[in-house]
Design a protein around this nucleic acid. Sequence first.
RNA 1: GCGGAUAUGGUGGAAUGGCAGACACGUCGGCUUCAGGUGCCGAUGGUAGCAAUACCGUGCAGGUUCAAGUCCUGUUAUCCGCACCA
Length: 800
Amino acid sequence: MKYDFSAIEQKWQKYWAEHDSFKAVTGSPKPKFYALVEFPYPSGSGMHVGHIKAYSGLEVVSRKKRLQGYNVLFPIGFDAYGLPTENTAIKTGVHPRQVTDNNIAKFTSQLKKVGFSFDWSRVVDTTEEDYYKWTQWIFLKMFENGLVFRDKTLVNYCPSCKVVLSNEDSQGGKCDICHSNIVQKDKEVWYLRITEYADKLLQGLDEVDFLPNIKLQQENWIGKSVGAFVEFSIKEQDEKLRIYTTRPDTLYGVTFMVIAPEHPIIEKYRDSIANIDALDKYKEECSLKSEFERTQLVKDKTGVKIEGLTAINPLTGKEIPVYVADYVMMGYGTGAIMAVPAHDTRDYDFAKKFGIDIIEVIKGGDIEKEAYTGDGEMVNSGELNGITNKKDAIAKVLEVLKAKGVGEAGVQFKMKDWAFNRQRYWGEPIPIVHCPECGIVPVPYEELPLRLPPVENFQPGTDGESPLARIDDFVNCKCPKCGHDAKRETDTMPQWAGSSWYFLRYCDPNNDSALASKEALDYWMPVDWYNGGMEHVTRHLIYSRFWHKFLYDIDAVTSSEPYAKRTAQGLILGPDGVKMSKSRGNVVDPNDVVDEYGADVLRVYVLFMGDYEQAAPWSENSLKGCKRFLDRIWNMQDILTDGDEFSKELSAPLHRTIKKVSEDIEALKFNTAIASMMAFVNAVYEKGSINKAELKALITILNPFAPHMTEEMYSNIFGGILSEQAWAEYDEALCIEETVEVVVQLNGKVRAKMNIPADMSQDDMIKTALENETIKPMVEGKTIVKSIAVPKKLVNLVVK
RNA sequence: GCGGAUAUGGUGGAAUGGCAGACACGUCGGCUUCAGGUGCCGAUGGUAGCAAUACCGUGCAGGUUCAAGUCCUGUUAUCCGCACCA
C-alpha cells in the first residue's frame, strides 16, 4: 500500500477546515497557550522555504500543546501595507489593493497546503479598514499623550524609494527596502517619541524570556550611556555651550571643543564669526558625503576651527578653541563635545592632525604614542589629583560641577525618535489635519477610519510628496476644531505601524468597539512564545514593545510586556551554502517540494536539517532521507501486530523516545527529536514488528511534525481523529533498561566493556570491574591509586 | 573599533565534565529487480595491520581534572550586528 501523499494531505486539510479543528476559544477553562509567528508580508513571489521553517517550529509546539490539553491560539495574518506592493502596482498598472488581494490569496493557499494548524477564523490583514482604523486610533492616542511630534531636522532619505526612513530602517546607511545608499535631507516629518520609552524598553527586558543575544541586540540598539552634561561659557558672547560626556573626570584635560557642522550656535553668531565662509563650505561638504563615506573613512579626521567663538573651561577658566568637525553628530547628545585628546582616541587623532595640545590627566599610558583610555591616578586635575579610579573621580567632579552650577549627571540613548511617515500611497493615512487657524489638529476618533482614497496614479511625487497630495477630495477638508478650510496630512504611516499591534487584534479580531476587548486580552495576553527572525530584533520587536508599553500605560492592554518568550530561527541557505536570493538563482520554492514530496516531508525536513536556531544549507538529498523515514513509518502498517501495551523489547526505547521528543520540542531542538524517532524506527525494524500500542504512541509524537500521514494512519488503524487524542505519556522509570553496558577505563583509556544491572552500586561496579577478565591481568601487580565509578556510565581505575 | 555567534568525518549535524561522531546524507560492497534517481542488508574518522589490535583525532597553544569537544587562560579564522555614540 503506497502512501499517496497528495490525496491524503488534501483529505485531511479539508477535514480540519470543515471541523474548525484548530479554533482557539476565548475564555475556555483549559490552560491557554498563545503561540505567535511573524505574519508574512504577502509578496508577489509567494512563500519562501524560510517562511516554512519559521512557522514549523511553533506549529509543532502548538500541535503538541493541543494534544496536551491546552487551548492554543496559533494565528496568522498579513502585514500587507508596504512599498514592494506599491512598486509592483506602479510597474504593472494593477491597483495595490488588487495586488495585495492576489498575493494574500496565494499565500493563504500555500500555507494551507503545508497543513499549518492556524486558526483561520482570526486572520488579520493590516490593510483592511476595520484593522487600520485601530492603527490610526493608537496613533491618535499617542498624539493625545504627547508622543507624536513634527520636527524639521536631518532625516534619512532614500532617493530611490523617495521616502523618509527611520533610523531602524536605514541601518548601515542602506535603505531597508531597496538597499540603496541613504542620504541625509533637511525635512519636516512626523516622529514618534520612542526615546521616552527607552528606559522602560530596557528595563522590561529583565521581565521576559528572550534569547540572550536578542536582549543584547536590543540593549545595544537602545544604547543607554551614563555621563554628564557640562556647560562651557563662550568668551565672546553671553552664551553657554552645552556638551555631553561620559568622562567628566577628564575635564582638566580638555584642550578643544568640537561641535557638529549643523550645530545652531554657528547660525546664531554667524555675523561675529570671522571665517564663516570656510564653515559654510565645510558644512556643505559634509552634507554631500554619503553615510557610507562618513562612516567608512573613519580614520581621516576633518574639521575647521571657528574664529570668533572661544570656550572657557568651567573648572580652570582656561580658554579653549572650538572646532567644527563631522565626527560629532548633531543627533547624539547635544551635538557638541569637550575634547580630551589624551584619553579619547578620536580626539587624539584630531589633535594630532590639527596640532592641538594634549594634556595627560590620568597616569598609566603613554600619551606620546596614543590616547590612554584606561584607569589610573588623576594628575594635573586640581581637586581630583590623587584619586586613583574613574568611579571616584567622576563622583567628585560631579560634586564640583553641581556646586558651581555648571553641570550635572545625565543619560543619553543611541536610539532616536522614530521617523514615522512615508511619502507613499500604500499605507495607513495619518489622521491629522493642518488648519491655518488651529495648526495641527487630530481627526476626531468617531471619524475613524480615515479611509485611504482610491487613486489612479500612485507614482510618488518628484517633490517628495505623497501621491495623496494630488487628490483634492482627500486633501481639502474642514478643520474638525474650527470648521475653517484645512488640508489633510498626506504622508502615510511606515510599514511597521500595522505590525506593531497585530498580536493584540488576534485576540479579538472582529471587535468594532475596541482594538480588542479587555476580556480577550486578559485571557490571551501576553504571548507565551513568539518566534521570528533576527532581522526584526531592532525593528519590529522594539517598535511593537514600545506600542504595547504605551497601550499599557493608557490602560488599553493588561500586560506590561507583549511577549513572554522570544526565540529566533536560523536562515535556510541555498544548496550552495549562500543566502538564497533570486539574483543567485539558488532559491528553493516550497511549492515544488510539496508537489514532489508532500507537505509532511517538507515539514520534517526543515526541522531536521540542523539546529533550529542556526543557519543551514538546503540539501535535496537530506530531504529524501526524511521521505524515507516517513515511508518506513507508513510501512509499519504491514508489520503491525495486536497489543495494548508496549512489548518488552520496545518499551524502554519507546519511553525514552517519548521523553526525548516531549522535551526537545519545548527546547526548540526539533532535529534531535526527529533523530530519536528515527532511531526508534530502526529499532522497530530490527525487531521486525510493532504492536498497536507502540505504533499509536509513535504516530502521536510524530503527529505535530507529519500531521497528514499520522492522521491517515490513525484513522486506518484505530478509527477516529488523532489530533483529538492525548499526547503520549512516558514513565521516567521505564526509560531505563534493566541492564546497561558500562566501560572500564584504566588511566582514562577504555580497556573493557561490561554488562551490569543499571542499579548496581558504585562499590559493586568497581568490584565487578576488577574481576573482569580483561582488566584483571592488566592491574595485577600494580597499585590502584584511585577508582571512580559513575552509575550507568563507567568505571575508571587509576593504576601505577 | 565595540558587541555577539560559530569552528567536530567527504556533508548536515549529535554529545547533564564520563565510550567523540547519535541521527541523516553521501560513498563503497552485496541482495531484490527486465530496469532504476526504488526497496532491503552490510561497511564507512585517520594511520598501520590479513587480523585481533595499537596509535592519533573536536581551529591553534597552554592549563585544571581520575577523565575535557565540553571548564579556565591566551590565540587564529569565518560569519552576523552596531559603528567617529562623545
